[in-house]
Amino acid sequence: MSKRILCRCEDVTIEEFGKAYRDGFAEMEALKRFTGVGTGFCQGKGCLCESALELARLRGIDPSQVPLTNIRPPIEPLTFEELASLDLPPLVGEMEAAPRGDDPEVGP
């Protein structure tokens, strides 16, 4: 059956994106988590602009008003053995000078 695919990785069609929008997911952050756009193998390279434009159209707002969702590193998937081969980098940025925790022992 013919389909107009918005996100190839997660097989989300334009119609399904609109349906999720009408279901109450009115922001990219929510649409991303519930339709899966931008979270698949391409990490949004193939669908993030397209989805944001579609959301602007659905909401009737200027595309510049759609906030950009976080594009988290890395840019390409990296095998764990590749990453493990790196020399341990320091914490960088402001963290270099930030106070250190004396007790890391907390968690899920």
Binding site: M1, V12, E15, E16, F17, K19, F25, F34, T35, G36
Partner: peptide, 12 residues
């Protein structure tokens, strides 16, 4: 694929 429009989208 033929009835997908009846299904929920993604993780909803």
């Amino acid at each position: 694929a033929n009835t997908g429009h009846l299904l929920p989208v993604g993780f909803y």
